[in-house]
Amino acid sequence: MSPSNIVTIRELSKEYRQGEIDVVALNNISLDIAQGEFLTLMGPSGSGKSTLLHIIAGIDRPTKGICRVQDIDVTKLNESGLADWRNQNVGFVFQTFNLIPVLTAFENVELPLLLTRLSAKRRREQVKTALELVGLADRSKHLPRQLSGGQEQRVAIARALVTDPKLIVADEPTGNLDSSSAQEALSILQLLSKQIGKTVIMVTHDPKAAAFGSRSIHLEKGELTN
């Protein structure tokens, strides 16, 4: 395990019990992800891409195996420890944006910062920087419904990076976007990994989207096939 690896996964499995049958979502996966990588996860539907992403991001737990992010085994943290860890280390981008509809773009981006000890002034600065980075500084007062899908997703990316996390995870972030909006979103993710050194892990079906990444891995029936 080299020190530049941010994520270390060893013999990771996830099974679901469905009555009598065991569904194997992930089967004995071992994977290293380096700092600053833009990793894309591909594979057919049901192959376990989301499951793997969720475990790395600390919102799901494996049945067995190790998933270490930096020096912390996230599978060993308890509920609230994991929540704190996510707040500080992971930024989420979802397929359906998942902005809070009653909050403005600015407030949506500010949301994860409410859990930190930052002063209101410092929070405002960070939100501004994040919105500028995604090119939406002029839309900060807009509500999600007053934004286009592409703009919404860029706000979501700003929300994901506002806490300055090490990892940004994205589950089919372009799935609901037209191709030009998708290009914009992907360029931003690429920029984050290339120029700011964030580690980005993205699930996608689209080979064109995967082309933005620095490395691509394939999952098939819960196993890596490279």
Partner: peptide
């Protein structure tokens, strides 16, 4: 429910 799950993902704890 979905929004509350998003809040959880962002790091809000159950008690919050």
């Amino acid at each position: 429910f979905r929004e509350l799950a998003v809040l959880k993902a962002l790091g809000f704890r159950r008690r919050e």
